[in-house]
């Protein structure tokens, strides 16, 4: 019985040696040339997508946006091209799918996502994300809206804090 096990073991590894060596070599040789998200080469890609590199020291002001179970750290600052950017960081995971941030230029607190709402970008987990804000935000009243795209649900709306305006 044990002799047959030893033979099975040896021939199993002979087969594995061929298959796994081929898999390893092919997997390495044929792998696509992804740009790693955290590498310096991707900075331009992030900028094209609306993200900007900014530092904490340049912040105009910061505050906390709260609504029931949602809590976001918010700050504004100017980027290297003098564009006003909003920095948002959830203090804890928001358990709703596909989260998008909108700016809605309206005087009253919206109950649903309006057609004129401007998409700023998406949130991801508790990562800090940065969004370029429209120029109108400095002069006009409006609301920041957190919306679950997959759930088709408006989760929270905050009047844009005046202290965050330049």
């Amino acid at each position: 019985m044990l002799l047959s096990h030893r033979k099975t073991h040896f021939f199993a590894f002979a087969v594995l040696s061929v298959l796994l060596s081929l898999c390893f070599i092919a997997g390495i040789v044929l792998r696509p040339d992804y740009t790693i998200a955290t590498s310096p080469e991707t900075t331009s890609l992030f900028e094209e997508a609306g993200f900007v590199i900014a530092t904490e020291e340049e912040a105009i002001a910061s505050t906390t946006l709260k609504s029931s179970s949602i809590s976001l750290e918010a700050a504004t600052q100017f980027d290297s091209r003098d564009r006003l950017v909003l920095i948002l960081k959830p203090n804890r995971p928001i358990l709703s799918p596909d989260l998008l941030m909108y700016w809605d230029e309206t005087a009253s607190k919206p109950e649903e996502l309006g057609d004129r709402a401007l998409l700023l970008g998406s949130l991801a987990g508790t990562s800090r994300r940065q969004f370029i804000l429209p120029d109108a935000i400095a002069e006009n009243q409006g609301y920041l809206i957190l919306y679950s795209q997959a759930g088709k649900e408006l989760l929270a709306a905050w009047e844009f804090p005046s202290e965050l305006k330049p």
Binding site: A12, L16, Y34
Partner: peptide, 18 residues
């Protein structure tokens, strides 16, 4: 041994791709 082969595939076609 089969599980090891599957895991090598899991790592080579997963983590090593990105």
């Amino acid at each position: 041994y089969l599980a090891y082969g599957l895991l090598v595939g899991h790592v080579v076609l997963g983590a090593l791709q990105s």
